[in-house]
Computed example of a mutant assay.
Amino acid sequence: MSTATDAAASSPESLGLFPLHTVLVPGAALGLRVFEPRYLDLVRECGRRGRGFGVCLIIDGQEVGAPASAAAFGTEALIEDFGADADGLLTLRVRGARRFHARRVRVRDNGLQVAEIEWCAPDSEQVLRPEHGLLAILLQELIDRFGGEYALAPRVRMEDAAWVGWRLAELLPLQHAQRQALLQIDDPHERLDRLLVLLP
C-alpha cells in the first residue's frame, strides 16, 4: 500500500535549464553573464528557493533567442558568487554539483526551459587503479603548470578515481562532444578508461 510520502518521493523533480555551448562537470567552476529576462527570472527563483539550476550542452541552437535543443544529461549549477560587470550585467560564478538526466522538458511563456529530471547516482569513493596512474601524473603536471584552485587540493585527491577523472575532463582541451560523453558515464573507472583513449 503506497502512502502520500511514497508518491511525493517518486514524483519527478523539476529543474530550470540554462543551455550553453559548454559542458559543466561536477566540481568545476564556471563564470556566466546573465542578461536575458528568462535567466534573470531563473536566478531570482534559485535565490528564493536556495537551489541551483541545470546546465546542459546545446546540441542545436544558440544561447540567446529561441529555446535551444540541449543534451538530456547535464549538471546542477550552484551559485557561489554574483556581481556586475562594467556594463552593469549580472555576473555569476557557479560550481558543478550533481549530474542529472532530463526526462521531459517544457517551455514557459518567457522561453525558460524547465525539465523533469532524475538525479544520477553520485560517484562512489573508489581508489585509482594502477592502469590509470598515468592520468594522475598528467593531472598533477597540469595543476603544476597552470596553478589555480586545485594547486591547494590535498594530495589524497590524486588517489580518488572520480576526482581525477572530473578534473581531467575539465582541464584537458577536449571537444564538447567528448566532454559530454564523459559526463554521461556513471562509473569512475570507465570514465578514466575513456580518457586514456582520448589522450594523444
Rank of each mutant, 00 (worst) to 15 (best):
R104L: 10
D109H: 08
A7T: 11
S69Y: 13
E159A: 08
A28P: 02
T75P: 00
E63V: 05
L24E: 03
G31A: 14
P200W: 11
A29Y: 12
A28N: 01
L42P: 00
L89V: 06
G111F: 13
I185Y: 04
A70W: 04
I117S: 03
D60P: 02
V197K: 12
L174R: 00
R95A: 15
R108M: 13
V164I: 04
E118M: 11
V156H: 15
G54I: 01
D41I: 06
E63K: 07
A136Q: 02
V156Y: 14
E13F: 09
P26V: 05
P200G: 09
R49A: 15
R191A: 12
R129N: 05
L128F: 07
L171Y: 02
L78N: 08
A29R: 10
R99L: 11
D85N: 15
V25C: 02
V25G: 00
A162C: 07
R155Q: 14
A169P: 01
L199G: 02
E170R: 00
H132F: 01
L142H: 00
L168I: 04
P37Q: 08
L171G: 01
L15H: 02
E131F: 03
F53S: 03
S14L: 09
L135Q: 03
L92C: 09
P67W: 07
F18Q: 04
L172V: 04
A29F: 14
D81S: 14
Y150S: 07
T22V: 10
A102D: 11
D186N: 14
G165P: 05
E116K: 01
R129V: 00
R98Y: 04
G148I: 06
R98I: 03
H189N: 08
G96P: 02
R145N: 12
I58D: 11
T5W: 13
R99Q: 08
H132T: 00
R106P: 06
R145L: 14
V107M: 12
L152K: 15
S124Y: 13
V114A: 08
P130F: 05
